[in-house]
Design a protein around this nucleic acid. Sequence first.
DNA 1: CAAATTATTATGTGTAGACATAATATGATT
DNA 2: AATCATATTATGTCTACACATAATAATTTG
Lengths: 231, 231
Amino acid sequence: MAENVSYQNVQAEVMRRINDHVWEPGGLIPAESLLAKEFGCTRTTINRALRELADNGILDRKRKVGTRVALHPERKATFRIPLTRLEVENSGAIYRHSLIERKICKPPVVIRTRLGLSATSKMLHVRALHLSDGQPFQYEDRWVCLEVVPKILDAKLETISANEWLVQNAPFTSGDIIFSAASASKEEAELLGTHEGDALFVVERITWQGTAPVTQVRLAYAPGYRLHSVI
Amino acid sequence: MAENVSYQNVQAEVMRRINDHVWEPGGLIPAESLLAKEFGCTRTTINRALRELADNGILDRKRKVGTRVALHPERKATFRIPLTRLEVENSGAIYRHSLIERKICKPPVVIRTRLGLSATSKMLHVRALHLSDGQPFQYEDRWVCLEVVPKILDAKLETISANEWLVQNAPFTSGDIIFSAASASKEEAELLGTHEGDALFVVERITWQGTAPVTQVRLAYAPGYRLHSVI
DNA sequence: CAAATTATTATGTGTAGACATAATATGATT
DNA sequence: AATCATATTATGTCTACACATAATAATTTG
């Protein structure tokens, strides 16, 4: 008798009660100590179950106030941000990349202000094309903050992509990502082997080391690219 | 004396050692029991610290084998999947939606096979336009599985959007999401108030209740839409 | 020697209890 | 009545210990 109740059992039952509207969206659910008594386990176990559900956005918790069912159950989707090389190789194709430009210069105002840099700052501007089985796969336009990552000037970016060098040598603490769709410019179309005006999937990413910007990159994918994710 | 060591302290120090290459990517790190001794806390605390980092993709853990620094630190990004209504309202605009079509019929083969339905299955096909301050914001093309959610036939989809009705009435256990870019068809362009061929940001989503498909939806956003996310 | 069996070990998860902390509710004071 | 100090409460996190489990290593067996 007295089987152990696992935190997963608790989670399953909590989810059932939410789905069956036993516990209404926005409503308070019983306190941990009560649930512990009801489920016949310790508060530790209940705590872990509820904490994880709160991490997943299913529940909202506040000290002293209690735990309530999230009002708008906006499920969180997570997706991995792989290296472009691995993204290609995982599809079974052969990866290659070619450096288009590598220049130290002052960034355009858009970039500078977005990163919060002074007007005199110089950055490393890198443009590269990533290929999958010889076909254009992704066009990369990157600005690297030299004050934060001066060592990148020693990197052989013809051999190792800036993407990969940064992952290995420039840790970041946080980042912003923006997904959008854009029409291919003439140059982009040429590089990606498609036509001007074609719809491209675009990812922009800015990464930070504390409050200092590390790098900003714009990745334009060749037509047909689909980013997959799971809820 | 003997200050408590929190799991967050442990996480911070672990991250430092990874960033400073004290622990190499792919390398084994000391076992929980050793770290507990080193940090002067219990294994429980170490476990929580490492477990969370593993959840975030920073570490790889396997029983008996140990814990290693993830070889390719593909950071996971998470983003919320809000109701379209809230997405609009949170931007300060007024939301409205208009139903374009609501029909019970057999789905095209693409949809049917993707959802694993039989050839005779009928589904509810809903098309709607979501507006932000009167301007076209998102075009929704949805198929709902009537075997799983028969009650949707009673819903007043002119009043409440299918999106919102389903969130409240049809829980799901898992889902796939695909992001892509597409050129606007003539009809899409008309509905979204733009031009044929314009680049649209497209989200496709399939949700499942166990192994049964709940709904498949294709959301095409008006030009200019950007999806934000944080790492 | 190869195959099957039996340790061994690192993580996974549970119990029981304690103190910390944030936010509210209550009561005392002006 | 309004303000401030004080209890109260639910979650947050830690200690200390125990047993479960998966995967490997060591050992026995055919």
